[in-house]
Every structure is written in structure tokens, then in C-alpha cells.
Design a protein around this nucleic acid. Sequence first.
DNA 1: ATTATCTATAGATCTATAGATAATGC
DNA 2: ATTATCTATAGATCTATAGATAATGC
Lengths: 211, 211
Amino acid sequence: MPTSAPPKNRFERRRAETRHALVRAARQILAETGDTSASIQTIAERADVGFGSFYNHFESKTELFDAAVTDALEEFGQLIDERVDGIDDPAELIAAGFRLTARMADSHPELTRILRDRGLAYIHSDRGLAPRALRDLEIGIASGRFDCADATTALSAVGGTLMSLVALRIARPDLDGDEAASDLAAMVLRMLGVPSDDAHEVTRRPLPDLG
Amino acid sequence: MPTSAPPKNRFERRRAETRHALVRAARQILAETGDTSASIQTIAERADVGFGSFYNHFESKTELFDAAVTDALEEFGQLIDERVDGIDDPAELIAAGFRLTARMADSHPELTRILRDRGLAYIHSDRGLAPRALRDLEIGIASGRFDCADATTALSAVGGTLMSLVALRIARPDLDGDEAASDLAAMVLRMLGVPSDDAHEVTRRPLPDLG
DNA sequence: ATTATCTATAGATCTATAGATAATGC
DNA sequence: ATTATCTATAGATCTATAGATAATGC
């Protein structure tokens, strides 16, 4: 499936813009307050969109916030995905994911807060980063790079640790983020059965920048 | 500090009961809906408490829900704590925590959902299970049972993996919970530097029941 | 001519409080 | 006599819609 075909004419583009303005406002509110109690009126104002327009795009506030979370996690997935494109080693892929996610706390604070608050529920989702991580884990297990029984369980462990890294970056911005990310990534690799020395080396390899 | 002195007279007891009924209702709502949008009226009805009474105990809905989350996590901490009382080995303590938490999905489903939705934000809290886990990690690192640099980072990893176990139990009740818990616990121990064989053995030791 | 957006508003719902009622302490 | 609870309600806020306005397609 293509990532939603680009709108043809001005009508469709304007419509898409209005919708996206609402989603963006909802994302901001999620990042700032962590909850969904803002009124539709407030959201529309924040989006600089007429109040009634809301109902042209969403039937309820829940629907809007669902779209906002999906949108944010999709963007997260793409951001990471673009940067790890050339990497083949499953262990290095996991490590790069951790290290890039930690840097996002600085470069994309809004996204980071949404990830912390809502990410756990999407660990086994078929969208975002989860399916790719699962595939990397399966490849690594099959090739013997990783040593663990079940890819689903491994995905839980890897995803949960990633979430905790995100939480740590937000709760303790004073700590060295790069170091914490590499440390955690090395621990995760050891958890997956990669020898300590190897894990340490993989998590210190040079890394592409993140916007 | 004592765990809030038991109320002396009937007045104080009745007051505490009303407050607790509100907290219990808030916990139920958190577990069922995952959000805090229910009206105060609805909450009071659920608690079988007069609407106006709410304001005798809480200034706002936020305050009530904060109390509800704290109450739930405190109960979680105590439940686990009671069961692991005799255990000395830090590795076995961590493993028992994981295995008991997984069983809570069946025995305490409400608590489990709150833990999944709100637990991550409390990973480094000074209440609940976090401070005890941190202490166990420090002891294990000092004694050489664990091999990792920083206890704070380790707490992140352990806590995040525990959260993911909770999420897994809720998302996939069809999987064998005991097995998933032992597997994940073994992976976490390996992450902390415990040799694979050792980790496997520790996570299969007999376990006390959970209510 | 068609379609999305915007403004205005009716009706529902929610919060916070005031005052009456019930329960207990001393 | 004191204190918490309960009922009733005023005022604020929110949702959903109807109808007017503005922008584009063909």
C-alpha cells in the first residue's frame, strides 16, 4: 500500500491541510499535557481551523487522538528507518535504533513524549517500527547472531527497554544520553545472546545524524 | 513513616471510607477506559457516594486520579514485596518479581492495566517497587552477582522489560504467561551479566503463590 | 455546481457551591 | 456542638448541527 497518494487538486490539498492541522494540534496537546481532555473548540483554535470543520474530518475526539498517535509513531518509524538504511547486521540495527531514539529526545521532543506515553501499547503493532524490529530479530535468530527462543518475547524485551530509555531521557535530561543509549543497547544485545565484547563494540560504531 | 495511622473513631473511619470509595472507583475507571475523562458525577455514582462529597476529599479530578495511580502502584509493590520476603539472591529476587507480576494479569487484572498504562512514568519513582529494585541491583552489582556499569541504567532496562511483560500479558493472553515471564526474566538476568545456564536455573525455581 | 470551511447557537453536560440532613464526640 | 455527607442548582463549558460564506472544478 502506498503511503496515501498525494492529493491531486487544490480542494483535496486544502482538505488534507485542514485535517493535518487538527492532527498536528492534537499531537502538540498530547505532548504538552499527556492527556486528551482538551475541548474540541480548544483544539480547533490551536489548529487555526473553524470549529465546525472538525466534524468534516473526525466523528469524535477519540478518533482524532488515535490518528494523532498513529501519525506520530509512523513519523518516528520513518525517521529511524531512513537512517539505518545501509546497515545489514541485525545487532547493529538494534543498537542504531536505540542510539537514534535517544537523540530524538533533543531533536524531536514532542514525538518523544508521545512515544513515552503511548508507545508501550503499540509494541506489537503492525505499523511503525515494531514489524521491522520483529523481522530483524527473526533474521538474527535464524542466522545465529542472536540466541533466544522466541522472537515475540524478544520483541517485548527490546521494545520495553527502548521505552524505558525514552522515559529515562525525559526524566533525567542531565545524564549523558548517548552514553546511556549505548549502554542500554549493549545490555539488550547481551540479553539477545551477543557476547559482551562484541555488544560493546557494535554499540560504539559511528552513527548517521538525525536531522 | 507508618503507612497512614489507622483512624481512631467512627468519624475518621467513615471519612476514610468515603475517600477510599472514590479512589477505588477511579481505579476501576482507569482500568476499564484507560483515561480520565469520566465526569466527577459518574465517579461519585460509581463510588456510591454523594456528588458533593467529592470536594471534601479532592480539589480536582486530576488530584483524585493521581491518588488512584499511587494507590494502585503501592498495592502492587506490597503484593510483590510480601511474596519475595525470604529471598536473598538479587538475581532470584528480580526473577521472582517478573514471574509474580505476570501472574497478576490473572489474579489482579485491574491493577495490571493501570500498571501497563501508567507504570513507565514511575520507573524511577521513590515509591512502589522501584526503590527496592534499585537497591537489589546495587547489592547485586557490589557483590559481583551482576556485571553492569550503572544501577540507574540497569533499573531502566529491568523496569522497561517488566512493563513490556505486562503489556504482553494483556495483549496476548493466549500465550503461556509463566513461560513468557521466566523467559523474559532469564533474558533480563543475562542482560545483567548472569551466565545463561545460571539465569535459566534461577528463573525456574519454585515460587510462592499470589493470593 | 459542488464542496469545504466558517459562524452562530440550541441543548446537553459538567463543575463547584450553598444549604439541609444525618451521624457521632464529649 | 461539630463535622461529613447529601441534594439541589446556578453558571460555565462543551458537543453537535444548521445554515451562510468562500473556494475551486469543469
